[in-house]
Design a protein around this nucleic acid. Structure first.
Lengths: 399, 399
DNA sequence: CGAAATTAATTTGGATTGCGTATTAAATCG
DNA sequence: CGATTTAATACGCAATCCAAATTAATTTCG
């Protein structure tokens, strides 16, 4: 346990205030005081220091109290977008998406590189990422010096605390210290995070989980990922390890264990389709799911069967996750959602069947079809969160 | 997030100091200061207040410094056993075990009631538990007034925060507010906890996880349970819900989903044996596993097959749990371990096969055959932990 | 045997924090 | 323009932690 001193106390309350300002837009000091349950005195002191540090701004318009606006008007406070910038990225086997965001998490520029990096040597991938980051920063009319930190979201088993990639489907190597590598290349602190964890935070901050402190997210892409929000914070396994849902085993098959990824991963669903030339091409370019969607609409029986099988396996797995975490909401994201009705129906049916009676109704399933920018924005949010948490330079004694 | 004020700060450091004293036996103030990273000043203040409150005692012997004991000798501090007493209990379908412990968690008296309560009306079960608690307290030559709180550990899906039993194999009813019921009967605060969670804390305090802050425990009894220790604290699902491992689904069968409990629960393993009169009797008395052990040693082929099947299913499930939590150690407990070599071997083999390569070696499997007292002691530990955390009466301003 | 040395624990003083009350600030209402 | 109302700040208090100085209780050595 961390030892508690006045400094920690202040840090906690600062984060609490900063978070209230982030979540509830322009907000007055009184309202912050109500939400955080801190005294107005304390809120004044902290907001004063935040103003000094340039992290927040005042706005004298927009006091939207109940019509009868008597008395001294409230001064609204909001995050200062210019306080810092971060870069977030989503790296997949067939493309990279970068965003630069301001201190609020609002996107300043976007860059998509539709490049297949699957199984390229690590140096090539690092080169491409470095290039993407630099270009996206330039697009935002900034320099890397203006960027506080970078967060890369990628699939696989990521050790957030150390910045190591233990395994990723896009890398040949395992156990790569990617944070150190990229930090050196960019000369900017770089955080490595699981893509699923990144978009989990994106949903907590901007998306379909703004109202919740507990939530689970399942990402269905090439890799099947899991993100967990527990008591308002990202939950990672022991040692900061991210979860890799595709590694879950469903049972024993003839030649070894059957993993979820083998039944419901993108590759598994599309495997039978590779024969078709046009389709194979599409898969290579990362458009497999879009093509599959079209075929399913045309009732391609083989693919429909595969989709139903996959939906079933995922539905069961979600039930298992709910059994373990009991979240009030489960958000599903990822390219596989494009498979359409047959997939979603079998998923929902399997889930309904598999959820234990004692947990019936505790959890709602929500589907989300956000684009890649949203994932990258989630990575940026991870970087911002660490920034919010970190003691800010000027945080000194009250003047 | 809790708002941080001096009181919280003090509470955190108090707990930290108290925990150091609990864990590291008689310990001097300097050593507490080193371990907690608090200044000696603060440690002195806190220990002073703990002494005033009678929670700890001084001991002038036993300063075991490096032989050359120069300078003023250290005063050793230890928990005051007499500071409080709690009752812990383990409730199963075929027996109840109660313990009274002192403030250190040391057992003062034990009571085992080998009564089959399976599916009795709730009032009967409550009666029996009340009786057991009262008798065990009397055995310790105490009165219920001397008991600070009671913690009941039982199988199923337990909502710790509210004290509700959402489902338990030993109850006909579901969603029972058992904490309120028992608190009123005993006129003593009563905590309801999952049995698996209780023994998880027992292992953290007294058993095979004293050295770890992260750990997962799998309990294999009539019900299959899961306990998680995360960053030194018990981890429960959202809303304080305990996990019920038996509800995990392994796949789709002919008539609906196949749950782990149907493949590896005590009932599942012993189901085929019910025909035998003597065996059926043993099962009813909760001795099924002991008898099964004997039969397996005699190479009863039917039972061996069932044990191997069960071990396989559990091994796979453990791999899945490790995939999600990545704990450095997994402790297995419960009556099913008595099934012996064939079971344990198939469990270990299935686990080794199912653990994803990227997580190979992060987790070690440990088997534990503690008796029921240990479970009950775990429940007592849960009660004690809440006591340690709670602001103590006399915790006022420093004198 | 008594003074010096050594280590433990407490006391003192300074800095920071949060909270409650009183005060100032900035608007509307009559 | 003054009274009223509400927001934000200023001031004083109590509690926390820490660092340095002080006191306490030993052992060591002359």
């Amino acid at each position: 346990m961390k030892t508690a001193d006045p400094e920690l106390m202040r840090a906690m309350n600062r984060l609490s205030v900063l978070d209230a300002i982030r979540r509830h837009g322009p907000i007055s000091r009184v309202e912050i005081s109500e939400r955080t349950e801190l005294s107005t005195t304390t809120v004044s002191a902290i907001t004063g220091s935040l103003l000094d540090d340039g992290l927040i701004l005042t706005r004298h318009e927009g006091d939207i109290r109940n019509t009868a606006a008597r008395g001294r008007p409230r001064v609204m406070l909001e995050l200062n977008p210019a306080a810092a910038r971060v870069v977030g990225a989503k790296i997949t086997a067939s493309r990279m998406v970068f965003v630069v965001t301001d201190f609020c998490g609002d996107v300043l520029s976007t860059l998509t590189l539709p490049i297949r990096i699957d199984r390229q040597p690590i140096s090539v991938i690092a080169d491409l990422i470095e290039d993407g980051v630099r270009r996206c920063v330039v697009d935002a009319e900034l320099s890397l010096k203006d960027v506080h930190s970078v967060c890369l979201g990628l699939p696989g088993v990521i050790e957030h605390r150390t910045g190591r990639i233990r395994f990723s489907p896009i890398l040949k190597d395992t156990n790569v210290d990617f944070a150190t590598e990229m930090s050196a290349r960019l000369d900017t602190p770089t955080i490595i995070e699981s893509d699923a964890t990144a978009i989990t935070l994106a949903h907590h901050w901007f998306g379909k989980a703004r109202d919740l402190e507990d939530m689970v997210l399942i990402s269905l892409e090439q890799t099947l990922g899991l993100g967990v929000l527990h008591e308002g914070r990202l939950f990672r396994g022991a040692g900061g390890l991210s979860h890799n849902l595709g590694d879950l085993v469903l049972g024993m098959g003839e030649d070894g264990v059957v993993r979820l990824s083998a039944k419901a991963g993108e590759n598994a669903i599309l495997a039978d389709q590779r024969g078709d030339g046009a389709f194979a091409e599409a898969v290579k370019l990362g458009r497999g799911m879009a093509h599959a969607q079209a075929l399913i609409k045309a009732e391609d029986s083989q693919l429909v069967t595969a989709a139903i099988r996959a939906g079933e396996a995922i539905g069961l797995s979600i039930a298992n996750i709910v059994t373990l975490f009991a979240p009030p909401r489960v958000i599903l994201v990822g390219t596989s959602l494009a498979l359409g009705a047959p997939f979603l129906k079998s998923l929902g049916d399997a889930y309904a069947l598999a959820i234990p009676p004692s947990l019936q109704g505790v959890s709602e399933l929500v589907f989300d079809d956000s684009n890649d920018d949203f994932w990258a924005r989630g990575a940026a949010a991870v970087a911002l969160y660490e920034l919010y948490e970190s003691p800010w330079s000027t945080t000194g004694p009250a003047r």
